[in-house]
Design a protein around this nucleic acid. Structure first.
Length: 193
DNA sequence: AAAATGATCCTT
DNA sequence: AGGATCATTTTC
């Protein structure tokens, strides 16, 4: 995979396959972007931490049931947005949360939007990267396989360099909080927490 | 270094 | 009422 957009087929797989595969790929919005170094999988109706747990289908979760490769952007804690990419087959409410990027394009613009924070902190967290790349709810449901809000192909991170840990901020999810469904590039200084 | 706190608002 | 967060402040 080179500097081309990722295909629909890339996303139309299980979230647990897509999440690690997204590491090393580049998220772009307009002039700003970065390389994905941290993701989490949210794996459908059986996943207590997934917004669509139990098949819960509401106006908010509707995008999860749609076509893979589209964005699911939601507001959290009143102030921040989080960006997910829908995965799996239509009707399977799965997604991958993008949690951190290594900034690679439009650094000055991003620093401006982030109040002059150092490069290392620009996109180190799901709410931060949305602010840095100016991703808001108007981008919810947008197709990310083409256009100016996309994910580009890039390096495939070798399996040995991928670390699997527990997902963040889902203490309410019972059993599911123990699952190692958070994927990071081992030792990368741009991962969060 | 870690823990507490306030901001803030859509969804249920 | 509460949450897939962050920045800032307060406390050890």
């Amino acid at each position: 995979m080179n500097e081309l957009f990722l295909s629909r087929a890339f996303f139309a797989r299980d979230a647990l396959t897509v999440a690690p595969a997204l590491l090393g790929k580049t998220l772009v919005h307009g002039d700003t972007g970065g390389v994905i170094v941290e993701t989490e999988a949210y794996v459908g109706p059986g996943d207590r931490a997934c917004h669509a747990f139990g098949g819960k289908r509401t106006k908010r979760t509707e995008p999860l049931f749609g076509e893979a490769g589209h964005a699911y952007v939601y507001l959290i804690y009143g102030m921040y947005c989080c960006l997910n990419v829908v995965t799996g087959l239509p009707g399977q409410p799965q997604c991958v949360l993008i949690r951190a990027l290594r900034p690679s394009a439009g650094l000055e613009t991003m620093a401006l939007r982030r109040g002059g924070k150092p490069v290392k902190e620009l996109c180190r967290g799901p709410g931060k990267l949305c602010r840095a790349l100016d991703i808001g709810r108007e981008l919810n449901t947008r197709d990310m396989t083409a256009g100016d809000f996309v994910i580009l192909g890039g390096e495939d991170i070798p399996e040995a360099q991928i670390e699997r840990t527990k997902r963040i901020g889902i203490d309410y999810a019972g059993e599911a909080r123990e699952y190692l469904w958070r994927f990071t590039v081992k030792g990368d200084p741009y991962v969060s927490r």
